[in-house]
Computed example of a mutant assay.
Amino acid sequence: MRVRKRWHLRMPVNAQGEWIDTWQFNEGRVLDIPGPIRFPVRPTGVVLEYTLSMGIPVVHRRVVSLFERLGLDREVQFLPAEVEGQTEPWFIINTLQVIRCIDDARCEEVFYWQPEDERPDKLGEYQNVRGLKVDPEKIGGANIFRPWGWLVALLVSERVKQAMEDEGITGIDFTPV
């Protein structure tokens, strides 16, 4: 996301131009969304094969092909999308796994919702995680997933990271966790 003069995908909309709830893409479940899902682009700029719109990974067909070759079809759902100004196929990567794996002790800082926050629905859950670290023992053989309690993060295995780098996928930026 640090590419200068890159394009910016805006909030996804349905065929009627209404915003689509983006949180559903973080829940780790198969989705049935009547298409098409459209992404306005503003500003236009350098097209990236991997980009985020409101935390949703939107990828070029080349990324889908790579993930299929890696056998990730049980770990992700590819939802067709239309990107303004583009004629090639684009897809949302909907991750199908949420794994309870955050290693609180190794994270830089972890904040939990407290009674004084007046959010009883979130009491004891993560409010913020800085310097995310995970316990590899809890991940098992997962290749792509979101960590339970901090669904804004999308994590991939070293295998997937290396394959994306080897393939030269544009727009990716990895941080070790």
Rank of each mutant, 00 (worst) to 15 (best):
W113G: 01
E68I: 03
R62M: 06
W23S: 11
E88D: 12
L79G: 04
Q86V: 11
R159M: 06
E158K: 08
N26G: 00
R130W: 14
T51Q: 15
G131D: 15
G141E: 13
R2Q: 14
R119L: 11
L9R: 08
T170E: 13
Q114V: 12
M1Y: 14
T87H: 08
E108V: 07
E82D: 10
S65Q: 13
P176W: 07
F25A: 04
I56E: 10
F39K: 04
L31I: 00
E137F: 07
G124E: 10
R29Q: 13
Q77V: 00
R69W: 02
E167Y: 05
L154K: 00
P40I: 06
T175M: 09
D104C: 05
I33C: 02
V83C: 08
Q127Y: 14
M54V: 08
A105S: 10
V63L: 05
K122H: 06
R146G: 03
E158P: 02
I99F: 05
P89K: 07
G85H: 05
V98K: 07
E18H: 11
P136N: 07
P136H: 08
H60E: 14
L48V: 06
V30E: 12
P115V: 01
Q114K: 15
F174V: 01
V46H: 13
E82N: 06
Q162N: 12
R29T: 13
E82W: 06
V134Y: 04
Y50A: 09
V134M: 06
V59C: 07
D166F: 01
G28D: 02
D21K: 09
V41Q: 00
F78Q: 00
E49R: 10
G141T: 12
F25S: 06
